[in-house]
Simulated assay, not measured.
Amino acid sequence: MNNTITKTNFSFPNQKSVYHGKVREVYTINDDLLVMIATDRLSAFDVIMPKGIPYKGQILNQIATKFMEMTADIVPNWLVATPDPNVAVGHVCEPFKVEMVIRGYLAGHAAREYQAGKRVLCGVTLAEGLKENDKLPEPIITPSTKEEIGLHDVDISREDILSRGIVSEEDYLVLEKYTRALYARGTEIAAKRGLILVDTKYEFGKTKDGQIVLIDEIHTPDSSRYFYAEGYQERQAKGEAQKQLSKEFVRQWLISKGFQGKEGQQVPEMTDEYINSVSERYIELYQQIIGEPFVKADVSNINERIEKNVLSFLSK
């Protein structure tokens, strides 16, 4: 798939360093700005798939930046500009080493843990008798550690975060407050689109002047799970699978092929036909979540386009 971007190797003016994440590549400029490029890489079970997904990076970047704009009145964020469909530029921050996961429903990882017999998740006790995809009495925060590339993020409780000094209590209270505020806003926006924001994760960092801000992606199909609201109650009552918008369809496909990112397992072959079907699903996700048609950027030479647009922005 030559119309995808899976790796970058730019050398921007005053570039200090570059960090290659699972999906995003982050260039530090002058110790002040971060140029974050959303690639078309696909990560599942903390493993990067061998092929890129056309337009995925553009979709993730545009959803994240739109939601940052729609939540800036309740939670400050790192964003400065979006000079290219795949690029966000923001302030340099020191990331907190935890991901703030919030769940309004028993789905995905939480449901798998529950079905395995666990009734305490990240220090939060879950009631007996819950079914997969049931709405929880109130949203719960189930943090995970932010691990290096190649390592699985690990569930962790608030108590362990504080006792191990990963985050100070003063800062953690802010992270919890912001997480709940963002989830409430995201839930409101989703409802207007006929969707349910099932669960999501947020990442935060600290600016040089000590302000805690939202960083990375927000409310994208890679970081969040959405159900269609119409028919949700009926499907639950019948014990049927929910119609959803998230990356879970990729995870389920991998599971059906015997892959869950465990040692010794091989990533199944992803044909061009399957890759294109995933791309079409991501476009559907964008249009449903944002409520606008998706406009495909020119992908005849993505690297050249990105470099030109970033250089133009930095020159200003």
Rank of each mutant, 00 (worst) to 15 (best):
179 T>I: 05
198 V>R: 03
171 D>M: 02
261 G>I: 08
168 S>D: 05
285 L>Q: 07
238 K>S: 05
225 R>W: 02
288 Q>L: 02
248 E>N: 12
168 S>R: 01
158 R>A: 05
273 E>Q: 09
239 G>D: 07
211 Q>H: 05
265 Q>M: 07
288 Q>R: 15
250 V>R: 10
281 R>M: 10
256 S>T: 07
258 G>D: 03
165 G>N: 10
232 Y>G: 01
184 A>K: 12
157 S>Y: 05
270 M>C: 11
209 D>A: 08
276 N>K: 11
178 Y>T: 00
223 S>W: 05
159 E>G: 12
191 A>V: 01
184 A>C: 06
254 L>H: 14
260 Q>H: 14
164 R>S: 03
183 Y>E: 00
203 E>Q: 06
162 L>S: 07
252 Q>F: 00
237 A>V: 15
156 I>P: 05
245 L>E: 02
245 L>G: 10
279 S>T: 11
177 K>M: 14
160 D>G: 00
229 A>K: 14
246 S>G: 10
275 I>S: 04
259 F>A: 05
193 R>Y: 04
266 Q>M: 12
174 V>T: 08
203 E>C: 07
175 L>E: 00
177 K>Q: 10
217 E>C: 10
163 S>F: 13
202 Y>C: 12
184 A>R: 11
282 Y>G: 06
173 L>N: 09
215 I>W: 02
233 Q>A: 13
266 Q>H: 12
197 L>S: 02
194 G>L: 10
263 E>T: 12
275 I>H: 11
156 I>S: 03
217 E>S: 08
235 R>H: 14
193 R>D: 03
272 D>L: 04
232 Y>I: 00
246 S>L: 03
281 R>C: 10
158 R>N: 12
256 S>F: 02
275 I>N: 08
231 G>H: 13
154 V>W: 07
264 G>W: 06
160 D>K: 15
213 V>T: 06
185 R>C: 02
250 V>L: 15
233 Q>W: 14
261 G>C: 13
161 I>S: 11
194 G>E: 13
174 V>F: 05
153 D>G: 10
198 V>S: 07
195 L>C: 11
192 K>H: 08
252 Q>W: 02
283 I>W: 13
161 I>D: 01
205 G>Y: 01
269 E>Y: 12
173 L>C: 06
179 T>G: 15
189 I>P: 14
263 E>W: 07
188 E>I: 04
240 E>Y: 11
287 Q>Y: 03
185 R>A: 05
